[in-house]
Computed example of a mutant assay.
Amino acid sequence: MVCIIYAHPNPKSFNKAIKEVVLETLSAKGVQYNLRDLYALEFNPVLSARDFETFLSGGVPEDVRREQEIIKGAKLLVFIYPIWWTGMPAILKGYIDRVFSYGFAYEERDGELVGLLSDKKAFIINTLGASELDYRPSGMEECLIKTTDIGIFKFCGIEVIRHLFLYAVPYVSDDERKAMLDKVKKQLEEVL
């Protein structure tokens, strides 16, 4: 099972085109998947005081439990989202804050924090408005990898097997965007 976690509010965005290519590729390969379109689900990204109380009492909020069950059943997590202000959209950050919680994604054992999702792999697909020349030399791409791939997913035990950056999406030609979609398809096929 593949879980696609998608975070973009615009139904005409290039991210939607990426999502469609991912779904078509999975369907063509006969791979079962579960799409989590966070905006369509109207997922509540706010980690509230009530959430903390529930977690501290050993419970899990119902919407979080549902997402955790879906993630438990997946071997591959495909994240599709734009980079806004050098980070992920707030709805996705809130999803991680709430769903990748203590006791589900990590825990303490003998004074050490241990990732609990080591049976999962991740493929991250990001769109950026900036060019590769703007991001790479400045070290921003490396920062994104450190904060996301290592700081979030590796911490939870998830192996990031691909992190695809698609640069200058609003400024490139349609042919270049088509080539990007072909790259998404090819790289996804390689990891299935």
Rank of each mutant, 00 (worst) to 15 (best):
E142R: 14
P170C: 12
E69I: 01
I124T: 00
E62H: 09
L23S: 02
L192Y: 03
Y106H: 11
R136E: 11
Y171V: 13
E176L: 15
G139S: 07
E20Q: 14
G73I: 00
V160F: 12
S48C: 08
E67M: 11
F14R: 06
L166K: 01
T148C: 09
A179K: 15
A168H: 15
D97I: 10
L77K: 09
Y167C: 10
N126H: 13
E20G: 00
E159Y: 03
I4G: 00
D63K: 06
K185C: 01
K75R: 13
G58W: 02
V99M: 06
F104Q: 07
L116W: 05
Y167Q: 04
L133S: 13
T147Y: 11
E112Q: 13
A130M: 10
L41H: 07
H8T: 12
A17M: 12
I96Q: 04
K12A: 08
L164H: 08
V2G: 03
D149L: 04
F55M: 10
S13R: 04
E141C: 02
N34Y: 08
T86F: 15
I150L: 12
S48I: 06
K185Y: 01
Y81N: 14
I125A: 05
G73R: 06
V46H: 12
S13L: 07
E42S: 15
S13K: 03
I4Q: 03
D110L: 11
K16S: 02
K121W: 05
Y135D: 10
L113C: 03
S57G: 13
D119L: 03
E20I: 10
H163D: 12
I71Q: 07
E62D: 15
L133K: 13
W84I: 14
N15T: 09
G94F: 11
D134V: 07
K12T: 09
L76Y: 10
K16W: 05
A28F: 09
P11F: 08
P89R: 14
E107C: 09
K121D: 09
Y33R: 01
